[in-house]
């Protein structure tokens, strides 16, 4: 059996498919329940009950929503660019899925343990903007178009600070491999020595996933629903799934870069009994809770404030911190990679 999976071409292909399913099926279930969790958590924060009709405590609400979305009609507006209109949600959804290929859930437990894993993640997350831009343009609607433009400018701006934060982390790790990044945090998680960068990264992740308080691309009070205002049924569902899967992905990146990935907080007995993947899941869920917490707490930014924060606050700050990190590592001789 093992021989078939590891030594024949067909077996290896099958193995990759099975590995992908092992990541994607829990992910999609997680996305379905994240929508429910969001409504429940926000309800609790606002002293409401949230969905409580379908099943005990409303646990079947996610499936009710999914069935509703699948049975509705896909409306394509007249004057829309048909092909691009349908392509955009698929792009958003598939980009949110393929990024998971490199996320390590344990030591060496990734579908693809590539040397430039973090660059791959950065590349995939920077492509996410195309789904929104194309959707906004192809809808042939002014609200959708404005939403698309907003999201493009916003994501490009915050990618800059995300890139610089990642560089500071990489300076301390000495490798672009996600597995090495986690292993470098054996002694101390990077969220402690690089606490300001952790905060900058988390806020930029909020902006990158178009979440409140940076949800201007869909700002319903100004743009109805922003770039996906013309979408319905399955196409809308794909956007929805893609957006929430992106939240999972960004939480995964925060966990891997700053919260020690699959590592337990302390390498002593009660913590080490829990397997690594569960630690990673716990950290991702914690980040997602903060995402929802932020949404229930803060009002939406104004667009010029958003740009100011990205370019005039985060960019100089993360640049300065990067130089500081490099200088500190150089002076103390902790710089990894031999040259220091």
């Amino acid at each position: 059996m093992a021989d078939f999976f590891f030594h024949t071409t067909l077996g290896q292909l099958l193995l990759i498919v099975l590995e992908s399913l092992a990541v994607l099926v829990p992910l999609l279930l997680g996305v379905a329940y994240l929508t429910l969790a969001e409504r429940k958590v926000m309800a609790a924060m606002q002293l409401r009950k949230g969905p409580n009709v379908n099943g005990p405590f409303g646990v079947l609400q996610a499936f009710a929503d999914a069935i509703k979305m699948l049975t509705k009609e896909t409306v394509i507006p007249s004057g829309a660019n048909r092909m691009l209109f349908l392509f955009a949600p698929f792009l958003t959804f598939s980009l949110a899925m393929i990024a998971w290929a490199v996320i390590p859930t344990g030591n060496g437990l990734a579908i693809a343990n590539i040397n430039v894993g973090i660059l791959y993640l950065l590349a995939i997350s920077s492509l996410g903007v195309y789904g929104m831009l194309i959707a906004g343009w192809a809808s042939n609607s002014k609200y959708a178009f404005l939403g698309g433009l907003r999201s493009a400018a916003q994501m490009v701006s915050y990618e800059v600070s995300i890139g610089l934060v990642i560089v500071s982390v990489l300076l301390a790790v000495g490798s672009l491999n996600l597995n090495d990044i986690v292993l470098a945090q054996r002694h101390v998680w990077f969220c402690l020595p690089m606490f300001p960068m952790f905060i900058v990264f988390f806020i930029s992740a909020l902006a990158e996933t178009n979440r409140a308080p940076f949800d201007l691309p869909e700002g319903e009070s100004e743009l109805v629903a922003g770039f996906f205002v013309e979408y319905s049924a399955l196409a809308f569902g794909l956007f929805f799934l893609g957006e929430y899967a992106n939240m999972f992905l960004m939480s995964g990146m925060v966990s891997i870069l700053f919260l020690g990935g699959w590592l337990p907080p302390l390498a002593i007995a009660p913590f080490t009994w829990i397997p690594g993947p569960l630690w990673l899941i716990a950290k991702i869920l914690f980040c997602l809770f903060v995402f929802i917490w932020v949404r229930a707490t803060f009002p939406r930014y104004r667009y010029d404030q958003l740009m100011r924060l990205g370019w005039k606050v985060f960019l100089p700050f993360s640049l300065a911190w990067m130089v500081l990190t490099a200088g500190f590592l150089m002076v103390t001789g902790l710089l990894p990679g031999g040259a220091g």
């Binding site: 920077s126 903007v129 195309y130 831009l133 343009w137 433009l149 493009a152 994501m155």
Partner: peptide, 8 residues
């Protein structure tokens, strides 16, 4: 992205 932004 900026190309597309302008061209659109």
């Amino acid at each position: 992205v900026l190309f597309l932004f302008v061209v659109m």
